[in-house]
């Protein structure tokens, strides 16, 4: 019957049909996704300009929340701490996960076992693991300081209970937790590099170090890009780890942006002000991602 229609009408009909069918597939997920993700993201940009509180009374206050942010010392502390975490967590995790992936990409016995071991911290619940780490870090009796003393280290770092040691402790646990995940991604990337490339480099007399920089690194570029973006966003939004390991303390030594949003929003019910902080977090992640995309594009061009 469709063959009786003139060609353009037929095409229009199939386009309509395909659109309806396509949407019908997407809709069950899209309804949930739109209501619970898209709408809140858009609402954020309204909320941030109001003084919405727990009673749901909202007044448009314009840029007042952002002006308040500029003079909020706790906000700047949170921002500084978030950057502190990010600046150390990204390179550490990158090096550790790539190093592990390179080790595991060789034909060694027991590779599957080590892969399991390295990935396990990532899927073990953070409530339990943060608690163990807290006990491991105990300055007086914890195994970590004992091990350090065994290797001749004389100091007694306070780790999670000292202002200087708490952020390094968080960074260590963050890296421990995530390196297995990124290792798997690097491993998948490494396995797509054709062996002939290494053979050719070897023919040219390149040593292992040389081969790493001339073959591995360039071939891994798409993977590295993906890992960098994910790690950056992951670092800026660090939250549950902090909440469970140090709760932002001691003092404000590990207070980060996500936690500050939580404090203002859910503990002090200042939804409007917390939304303004959220916008800062959103903007940082957005900008960093865009910049990384642009840099990646230019490098590929």
């Amino acid at each position: 019957m469709a063959t009786l229609l003139p060609a353009p009408a037929r095409r229009r009909r199939t386009v309509w049909r395909d659109t309806a069918v396509g949407w019908s597939f997407i809709l069950p997920n899209f309804v949930g996704f739109a209501v619970l993700t898209l709408v809140p993201v858009l609402a954020l940009f309204y909320l941030a300009f109001t003084n919405w509180n727990v009673f749901g009374l909202a007044e448009w206050t314009g840029p007042a929340n952002f002006q308040r942010l500029m003079h909020d010392a706790s906000f700047w502390t949170a921002l500084r701490n978030t950057l502190y975490y990010t600046v150390f967590h990204i390179p550490l995790t990158m090096v550790a996960s790539l190093g592990l992936a390179l080790l595991l990409n060789r034909k060694l016995r027991g590779v599957a076992f080590f892969r399991t071991v390295a990935f396990f911290p990532y899927i073990a619940a953070i409530v339990a693991t943060a608690q163990v780490w807290n006990m491991l870090f105990s300055p007086e009796y914890g195994p970590i300081n004992h091990i350090l003393h065994f290797f001749g280290f004389s100091g007694n770092p306070g780790w999670t209970v000292s202002a200087d040691g708490s952020m390094p402790a968080v960074i260590i646990v963050g890296t421990w937790r995530e390196m297995g995940y990124y290792m798997l991604i690097f491993l998948a990337g490494l396995q797509t590099i054709p062996g002939e490339l290494y053979e050719a480099a070897r023919m040219d007399g390149a040593n292992a170090w040389h081969r790493f920089w001339t073959v591995t690194v360039p071939s891994l570029r798409p993977t590295t890009f993906f890992v960098t973006v994910m790690l950056t966003i992951g670092s800026f939004k660090v939250f549950d780890l902090i909440l469970l390991l140090t709760n932002g303390g001691p003092g404000q030594s590990t207070l980060v942006l996500s936690q500050y949003i939580y404090q203002k929003g859910f503990q002090e019910n200042q939804f409007g002000y917390a939304s303004a902080i959220s916008i800062v977090l959103f903007a940082i992640c957005f900008l960093v991602t865009v910049v990384q995309f642009l840099v990646n594009k230019r490098r590929n061009a």
Partner: peptide, 24 residues
């Protein structure tokens, strides 16, 4: 375009919209 919107939200941290989501 729709798929791009999906992928785009993977880069948006949940922590940044947890407040409007909670109100909703």
């Amino acid at each position: 375009l729709l798929f791009l919107a999906y992928i785009g939200t993977i880069a948006v941290p949940w922590q940044s919209y947890m407040i409007p989501q909670f109100i909703l």
